[in-house]
């Protein structure tokens, strides 16, 4: 059975983020062995695969966090691999948002301070940053939780704070690595509904790493990573033109 391993979806669309022939090794272990992926503006893509298949490495490679052995990553038409480390950091801060399995909130900062951090790093004045952070907490159903510390919230609430923090600086792409991995079924569903509703409302492209089919089912399509290769995936996403830009 032959299939297009680039797994592009809408041939008429222009990818927002692409990679070609990605290879990444850690010592003698080849985590990625030549991966091609196209990610289109506004789509929610799930990257699935068994533990150790290379799916998290793929996320880190797409986000410019790990060093590539070979290959290129193109964001919005520009070759990210040609950028300096400082330029890549600036790109991550301005265009990418991140959500991790355990939220990775700073434990000594309140929810609103956690959410305002990316804005402060981007040079937004503190008062305005706090206002925007509070507004995002409200949108995520966390009104009244702004002063709480991460340890005073449930897993689902903390994860929603992490989503607010990832979306507060209006990223073009949100990378989520096992965002529901530490949550029960109901909390996981609520987090995914919140995440995908907000992403679709704002036109944010989302890349979700998950081994959970129910989490992946919130995406528009999925690709499967196995032994460092993208081995299969759905090529649908025919409504690319309907996605908010």
């Amino acid at each position: 059975m032959e299939m297009d391993m680039s797994l592009g979806c809408n041939s008429s669309g222009v990818p927002l983020l692409s990679c070609r022939n990605l290879r990444v090794s850690f010592g003698v272990t080849e985590a990625l062995r030549g991966v091609d992926v196209d990610i289109y503006p506004g789509e929610v893509l799930a990257v699935m695969g068994p533990s150790g298949s290379g799916k998290s490495t793929l996320l880190h490679a797409l986000a410019g966090v790990v060093k590539l052995d070979t290959g290129t990553v193109t964001y919005n038409g520009s070759d990210v691999t040609a950028l300096s480390e400082a330029e890549r950091s600036a790109l991550r801060l301005s265009a990418f948002g991140f959500v991790f399995q355990f939220g990775q909130l700073l434990p000594d900062l309140s929810a609103v301070d956690n959410v305002s951090l990316p804005l402060l790093l981007a040079g937004i004045p503190r008062r305005r940053a706090l206002q925007q952070a509070k507004s995002w907490l409200d949108r995520l159903g966390l009104a009244g939780f702004g002063d709480k510390l991460p340890g005073e919230m449930s897993g689902g609430q903390a994860q929603r704070v992490a989503i607010a923090r990832a979306l507060v600086n209006a990223p073009k792409i949100l990378f989520a690595d096992e965002p529901t991995g530490s949550l029960d079924s109901l909390a996981a569903e609520n987090v995914m509904l919140t995440l995908t509703d907000l992403a679709r409302a704002t036109g944010t492209t989302v890349v979700i790493i998950t081994h959970d089919p129910r989490t992946a089912a919130h995406a528009d399509r999925e690709i499967i990573v196995r032994d460092g290769l993208v081995t299969s995936g759905s090529v649908a996403f025919s409504q690319a033109s309907d996605v908010p830009q």
Binding site: M1, P213, A216, A217, D220, I224, S232, A236
Partner: peptide
């Protein structure tokens, strides 16, 4: 390959239900 095709069918149904 056939398992992948079936997985895709299942994921499509899961998306419909979601």
């Amino acid at each position: 390959g056939l398992l992948d095709i079936q997985r895709g069918e299942h994921m499509a149904r899961l998306r419909e239900l979601t």
